[in-house]
Simulated assay, not measured.
Amino acid sequence: MTTVEARPDLRRRPTRRPPRARRLLGLVLTAAVLALLAYLSLAVGTRTTGAGAVWDALTRYDPDSTDHLVIRELRLPRTVLGLLAGAALGLAGAVMQGVTRNPLADPGLLGVNAGASLFVVLSITLLGVTSPRGYVWFAFAGAAAAAVVVYGVAALGRDGASPLKLALAGAAVGAAFGAVTTAFLLVDQATFDQFRFWQVGALAGRGTDVIAQVAPFLLVGCVAALFLGRVLNTLSLGDDVARGLGAHVARSRAVSAAVVVLLCGSATAACGPIGFVGLTVPHVARMIVGPDYRWALPYSMLLAPCLLLSADVVGRVIARPGEVQVGIVTALIGAPVFIALVRRRHVSEL
């Protein structure tokens, strides 16, 4: 009787790349796309310039060159602001959705936009502030004040600041602040004329002085948000499970809310209210990497400025020789994308 020796299968089986490697590769590719969009933001506009002019303007600046002046004085500040504000809005949206366990939450849920708008109107009406540089501190103070009121109202009662109570308190405070803002605008035409340019949401008209004012808050907020991945993963399991795992739920929510105010308040103060970025981008990030916030947060930080810069570039070229402000373009781009995303059940659920 002969025995047949089993031969080992010498065919090489394809090895699957581990999820971590794929996610890291996705981050690198997203960063490359963001770098390309940053270049387009410097090169494209009413006056289109080439790659050589962009590089020369950054490395060998000639104040007598019109192209160099346009790039350094106009396009570079709005590109840097788009990078910072986009990252802040993306992270703020992801943190807000994680804290409230609400896929429709955005940074405005804590009343940040309403508070910033009210304080900007008050600064124009009562103090005669007329420049974005002057708006910044009032908008930031208004955003912080609104968030404190919302969190204080939601914290009343036995359960503390639960996700549902945060959403309800945010809606109530936002409506109240919005009513007061509208009342001021209706009785003062001059205030309305000043306020509408900030309210539409724009990257244009903000110089390096505005960036210098908000950059420290944006950078600190971004770093702090990236460390909240494990906290948000724990909160997403529910309050009872989170407590069982040793998490301090109230403190975690308070810290997360403070980070949202820091990020969204700074971005709103500098650019005005810009919608759909903080709402849509976290859904795209979770569609790519799943519900793990340790990955969703860095993806949101890179994807959001991609959306903001692409919207800014589109706004410059669709209405030449003028331009459409970025807040309008993000709404036109973000609304259809968000509708398509929420129709997919596994994306809309947290």
Score class of each variant (00 low, 15 high):
residue 214 V to W: 10
residue 215 A to C: 07
residue 216 P to E: 13
residue 216 P to R: 09
residue 216 P to W: 10
residue 216 P to F: 06
residue 217 F to H: 14
residue 217 F to C: 09
residue 217 F to W: 15
residue 218 L to G: 03
residue 218 L to R: 08
residue 219 L to S: 03
residue 219 L to T: 12
residue 219 L to Q: 08
residue 219 L to G: 10
residue 220 V to T: 14
residue 220 V to Q: 11
residue 223 V to E: 12
residue 224 A to R: 10
residue 225 A to K: 03
residue 225 A to Y: 03
residue 226 L to F: 05
residue 226 L to H: 06
residue 226 L to R: 02
residue 226 L to D: 03
residue 227 F to V: 12
residue 227 F to S: 14
residue 228 L to K: 07
residue 228 L to S: 13
residue 228 L to N: 10
residue 228 L to C: 12
residue 228 L to V: 03
residue 229 G to V: 01
residue 231 V to K: 14
residue 231 V to F: 12
residue 231 V to M: 14
residue 232 L to I: 00
residue 232 L to F: 03
residue 233 N to P: 10
residue 233 N to R: 09
residue 235 L to N: 07
residue 236 S to Y: 06
residue 236 S to D: 14
residue 237 L to F: 11
residue 237 L to V: 09
residue 237 L to N: 07
residue 238 G to M: 02
residue 238 G to A: 02
residue 239 D to A: 13
residue 240 D to V: 12
residue 241 V to R: 13
residue 243 R to I: 03
residue 246 G to N: 05
residue 246 G to Q: 08
residue 248 H to A: 14
residue 248 H to S: 15
residue 248 H to W: 12
residue 249 V to M: 00
residue 249 V to I: 01
residue 249 V to E: 08
residue 250 A to D: 15
residue 252 S to N: 04
residue 252 S to P: 02
residue 254 A to C: 12
residue 254 A to L: 15
residue 254 A to K: 13
residue 256 S to C: 15
residue 256 S to M: 08
residue 257 A to L: 14
residue 257 A to C: 15
residue 258 A to P: 07
residue 259 V to S: 02
residue 259 V to C: 00
residue 260 V to C: 05
residue 260 V to T: 10
residue 261 V to R: 08
residue 263 L to A: 01
residue 264 C to S: 15
residue 264 C to F: 10
residue 265 G to Q: 07
residue 267 A to W: 13
residue 268 T to F: 09
residue 269 A to M: 03
residue 269 A to G: 15
residue 272 G to A: 00
residue 273 P to I: 04
residue 273 P to S: 06
residue 273 P to C: 03
residue 273 P to F: 06
residue 274 I to H: 11
residue 275 G to W: 07
residue 275 G to L: 04
residue 276 F to Q: 01
residue 277 V to N: 10
residue 277 V to D: 11
residue 278 G to P: 05
residue 279 L to V: 00
residue 279 L to C: 02
residue 279 L to W: 11
residue 280 T to W: 05
residue 281 V to T: 08
residue 282 P to A: 00
residue 283 H to C: 02
residue 285 A to V: 00
residue 285 A to K: 05
residue 285 A to L: 00
residue 285 A to D: 10
residue 285 A to F: 04
residue 286 R to C: 01
residue 287 M to I: 09
residue 288 I to P: 04
residue 290 G to E: 05
residue 290 G to K: 03
residue 290 G to H: 06
residue 290 G to D: 08
residue 292 D to K: 01
residue 295 W to E: 13
residue 295 W to Y: 14
residue 295 W to K: 01
residue 295 W to G: 00
residue 297 L to N: 10
residue 298 P to H: 02
residue 299 Y to N: 04
residue 299 Y to F: 15
residue 299 Y to G: 00
residue 300 S to K: 11
residue 301 M to L: 15
residue 302 L to Q: 07
residue 302 L to F: 13
residue 303 L to Y: 05
residue 303 L to A: 00
residue 303 L to G: 01
residue 304 A to F: 04
residue 304 A to N: 06
residue 305 P to D: 11
residue 305 P to T: 01
residue 305 P to W: 03
residue 306 C to H: 12
residue 306 C to P: 09
residue 306 C to E: 13
residue 308 L to Q: 03
residue 308 L to V: 01
residue 309 L to M: 01
